[in-house]
């Protein structure tokens, strides 16, 4: 099968999987805008993750 045909096959598969997931699972709702407004400026401030980051990323 040619590259273009294989690609079309992959697209069809991806789209059909999306439909399946949409019908059979409960997707996580996107966060509300009010949630965003309530959040601290830097939620990673106290996280262990941040300790491993180089200074220029902080």
């Amino acid at each position: 099968m040619s590259l273009s045909k294989k690609s079309i096959h992959r697209i069809n598969k991806a789209v059909e999987t999306q439909d399946f997931e949409k019908d059979s699972s409960v997707p996580l709702p996107p966060p509300t805008l009010s949630d965003t407004e309530k959040t601290p400026k830097n939620p990673l401030q106290k996280s262990r993750m941040i300790q491993n980051l180089p200074d220029y990323l902080l």
């Binding site: 273009s4 690609s7 079309i8 697209i11 991806a14 997931e21 949409k22 996107p30």
Partner: peptide, 23 residues
Amino acid sequence: SPWGLFGLANLFDFLNEIKYVTP
């Protein structure tokens, strides 16, 4: 082009993975 369609397939795979944030 063949690579254009290949890229399109990659994009659709990506969209599939992030569907839960862009319902």
